[in-house]
């Protein structure tokens, strides 16, 4: 197959790869041959690649990544364990919805990261405060998406199952759960972004270890290439998690494939 034919079939892939290659190349060439740059202020792809190799491939940053991951996983797990039941109960019982909706909506709309200093005063610098911040930021997408999923369950399907003699248990397992699951996975995608914000803020603000701390430390000491390699790690992790959840969305709800694009 010729290049032209390949392009005709995958124009987006080719253009995307070309666009990245050209930008990186231009960046590298510009700083190597054209502009005399201040290394405390700018850096270039070859230096970033070298720093990435040193920090990631040879493992200097791994300890920090592990520490951040622990707080991330702990906070997110807590958010799932708390958020999904609250959302489900709000979906099943009108009164619970009435009671909790104004409070939770107000909290969801607020920049709760502003509470980071309070959490650090309360829990001290370390894992607990970071996990608490991650929890606080990521619990709401689980609550509201579970709620929306339970609410969006088709009444007709409930009538169908009941008319065939289904019990309440059947309703939950055969109708409500399958139709809510895609909403929860979509919520998880939102929650991950917010959880990463929690990690970053917690570690920028008060920490002595972790990926966020490392990035801000590299910045303070003008080690730009290392800082970019840290940013790149976070970027890769974020994209990988987001794509994995998008795949999962397709697995749990193959019938609503392009329900939410992007």
């Amino acid at each position: 197959m010729g290049l032209g034919a390949f392009y005709d079939q995958h124009p987006r892939l080719i253009l995307g790869v070309a666009s990245i290659a050209v930008l990186e190349g231009a960046w590298e060439l510009l700083l190597t041959y054209v502009v005399a740059y201040n290394p405390f202020f700018l850096t270039k792809p070859s230096l970033i690649a070298a720093a990435f190799n040193q920090q990631i491939i040879q493992g200097k940053l791994w300890k920090d990544i592990a520490i951040s991951s622990r707080a991330f996983a702990l906070g997110l797990a807590l958010a799932i364990l708390v958020g999904i039941p609250i959302g489900a109960v709000m979906g099943w019982r009108r009164r619970v919805e009435y009671a909790l909706d104004p409070l939770l909506t107000a909290l969801y709309a607020s920049p709760l990261v502003a509470l980071a200093p309070v959490l650090i005063i309360a829990f001290g610098v370390g894992l607990t405060a970071k996990a608490a911040l991650v929890f606080l930021l990521s619990v709401f997408p689980f609550v509201f998406n579970t709620f929306a999923g339970v609410r969006a369950t088709d009444r007709v399907l409930i009538n169908v199952v009941t008319s065939f003699g289904g019990k309440e248990r059947d309703l939950y397992l055969k109708v409500i759960l399958p139709s809510t699951l895609p909403y929860i996975v979509a919520g998880a995608r939102l929650a991950i972004g917010r959880a990463l914000v929690g990690i970053l803020v917690g570690e920028f603000y008060a920490a002595s270890e972790g990926i966020g701390f490392a990035i801000s430390q590299f910045g303070d000491t003008y080690r730009l290439a290392e800082m970019f390699s840290g940013i790149l790690v976070l970027c890769i992790a974020a994209v990988a998690l987001t794509e994995a959840l998008r795949k999962l969305e397709r697995v749990v709800a193959p019938w609503s494939a392009e329900q939410t694009s992007r």
């Binding site: 987006r12 666009s19 970053l200 920028f204 801000s216 940013i231 976070l234 970027c235 974020a238 992007r262």
Partner: peptide, 23 residues
């Protein structure tokens, strides 16, 4: 234009932009 910019938009949108704060 969509195909050219899509990789950047997608990657940057998934990454919390706060990571650029030190920079």
């Amino acid at each position: 234009l969509d195909a050219l910019l899509d990789p950047y938009v997608n990657a940057l949108n998934a990454t919390p932009r706060l990571v650029f704060l030190p920079l």
